[in-house]
Amino acid sequence: MAQEAPGAGGKRPLEGRGRSLRVLRALLGAAAGVPALALAAMVAVLLVEAMPAIRYNGLGLFTSGLWSIGSLYSQPVRTGGVLHLVGAHYGALWLIVGTVESSALALLIGFPVAYGAAVIIAERLPRPLAASLGLCLEVLAGIPSVVIGLWGVLVLGPFLAHDIYPELAKLPDVPVLDFFRGGVGSGEGLLTAGLVLALMIIPIIAATSRDLLRQVPRAPKEGAAALGMTRRETFKAVQSRWIRSGVAGAAVLGLGRALGETIAVALVSGSQIQNPSNIYDTMTTIAATVVQQLDSALTDPSHLAVRSLAEVALVLLLITLAVNSLARLLVRRSARDVALPVGAGL
């Protein structure tokens, strides 16, 4: 075919690719809707499944710490239209407290470590060393949580209980440090769970922060150097601000993982539905409870046990969503403060 000469168009139709673009847009719109639909469906299913439990447990779910399936040796009875075992009582207070405490601990311990590691890897270490450490992060991120959990309960827990916790428990007798004093237990408990969770979220936060640091453009860094700033001052003025909202996002991602982590916590928390008396004491979380109680819950002929597990799962989902929205709000605010020119080719 001969090439068309420019200007040879004359009076040809101008509509072109409009229709195929419309189809593409519709497809993309549908694809974009999938996550939202999936979320809505999940909430709806959990809600329907949990409804009898919501009615039976009421606000007691949040105010009571007693979790009891009731007597399996008597016939189920009906209260307010809901079938339940005699003595059934579902209070999730300590599950919620345990979930929040262990995740907060994980973030408190894991975030500084992860951020520090990212800064050192991206800013200080020579390339080859940085690359191999980065590889370590990726490997660490890829370890299945059951493996970390097993290691936690077989190796880390006993080590901590034997060599570290006793020292920590000797902290001065000041009221604020009460939580660190007292018996250290066997190494299964809140602090061990927090440490294991920290280990699991460090790779996500560190790798993300490192990638963000690498993307900070050179120009403002040179501007800082040209003012006579040291490397540390330059970092404070440029890099740390440039990556701030991204790092906050990574932290929330990590927190989300910690909140929902199941098997590792089930293995190292001691699995006691109770308010831990100190930071070494046994406890449990929502996710760990769901997986550990499911078997026995299925034996409940009134089905209320399973429905109550669905209810706490719903609570966990809502906590995670709340954390995410809060973080999104914070990130948007800090991004608005500096309004980073994303991809503005600085």
């Binding site: 403002p220 040179e222 601000r241």
Partner: peptide, 9 residues
């Protein structure tokens, strides 16, 4: 510098 390079603040 050649291109403006304000700090993110």
């Amino acid at each position: 510098f050649q291109r403006p390079n304000p700090f993110p603040m």
